[in-house]
């Protein structure tokens, strides 16, 4: 029988359910092949993130809650899932660093191919995904006789609308055996302590490139971002130069995002960068070079020096009474 297992983004029960999990549930719905179960791995899951417990359309929650599962290592999780995965026709994960680490490992265990970064569902076994940094799309089919494994390209999907089901789905807690071999351990996480919206889900993003020239100058963008309640993004060149932390990199090898508004300051528009913003609503480019490739994809382009444009923009927002 067909059934779908969605492995939720790793989190504890304190924070609300991750948007990436809700997006993965949207993909599960689109596939529509039988009941949907949710599996949770983490520490501090004595209660599920709100409102997972009452979510409509979930048959069952599997909960693996153990201190060894804080930032769960893929080798441990795949051991826990083990052969149970074979009970499902479909295994889905968000295309987060958790999903991209874990699901290929499960695919290896199950001997099944994996469809990475699904951008469209065309049928229970047919999907659209990008190759060559999104410059080409392919339609792929998972052969019969193996389960369908896929990660979700988050920028292509909207979260499901949260609705309460007729009754909460049963929650089954599974103890992690003390004997399970632990060959990978979480040591620490260094997070950027900003109060700004998360880059992956922000409605607006203000982004800067190499031309900012220093970490101090990069702070200019922060002023604008705070004003617009925007997240900050960066090109690889800006991250490599140390102006911005790695988790702010936008592009083929960074984050792929789809904000309503993307403001790019002093970013040339290399294909690897453009891959990351293809699905943005409105792209604004500010660049002093009128020939910069970013203008080929920008909805609104302004040729100018960013060091003059940003203060002007802040003043203009003041004048028009925006963002106060």
């Amino acid at each position: 029988m067909d059934a779908i297992l969605v492995i939720a983004e790793a989190q504890d029960g304190q924070a609300p359910i991750a948007e990436s999990t809700l997006k993965t549930l949207a993909v599960a719905r689109k596939i529509g092949a039988g009941p949907v179960d949710l599996a949770w791995f983490g520490a501090g899951l004595d209660r599920l993130p709100e409102p997972a417990g009452t979510l409509n359309g979930i048959r069952k929650h599997w909960v693996f809650d153990d201190p060894r599962l804080v930032h769960p290592p893929a080798s441990l999780v795949s051991r826990l899932i083990g052969s149970r995965a074979r009970e499902y026709s479909h295994l889905l994960m968000p295309g987060t660093s958790f999903g991209r680490d874990l699901l290929p490992r499960l695919a290896g265990l199950l001997g099944a191919p994996l469809v990475s970064d699904v951008l469209e569902v065309l049928g229970p076994r047919r999907f659209k995904r990008g190759i060559y940094a999104g410059n080409i799309h392919t339609v792929v089919r998972v052969p019969d006789g193996v389960p369908v494994l896929l990660t979700v390209r988050l920028a292509s999907w909207r979260p499901i609308v949260v609705e309460e089901g007729p009754a909460p789905a049963p929650v089954e807690k599974i103890a992690v055996p003390g004997t399970i071999p632990v060959d990978a351990r979480f040591v620490g996480l260094e997070v950027d302590q900003s109060a700004r919206p998360d880059l992956q889900s922000a409605r607006r993003v203000v982004s800067g490139g190499r031309s900012l020239g220093s970490r101090e100058n990069f702070a200019l963008l922060e002023k604008l971002a705070d004003r617009l309640n925007a997240a900050i993004g960066a090109s690889r060149a800006a991250v490599d130069a140390g102006y911005a932390p790695n988790d702010l990199q936008v592009g083929q090898t960074g984050k792929i995002i789809a904000p309503e508004l993307y403001l790019a300051f002093g970013i040339s528009g290399a294909i690897q960068h453009l891959t990351g913003i293809r699905d943005a609503g409105t792209i604004v480019a500010v660049n002093k070079d009128p020939e910069a490739p970013i203008f080929k994809v920008a909805d609104l382009g302004l040729v100018g020096d960013l060091f003059a444009v940003i203060p002007d923009l802040l003043a203009e927002l003041d004048r028009q009474g925006i963002g106060r």
Partner: peptide, 24 residues
């Protein structure tokens, strides 16, 4: 081993250049 079968290669939807604005 089982491999994904590629049924089609497609050009992605293109973004087209928009408007140049003259001022902030």
């Amino acid at each position: 081993l089982p491999r994904l079968e590629v049924e089609a290669y497609l050009p992605p939807p293109e973004r087209v250049a928009g408007l140049r604005v003259e001022s902030v």
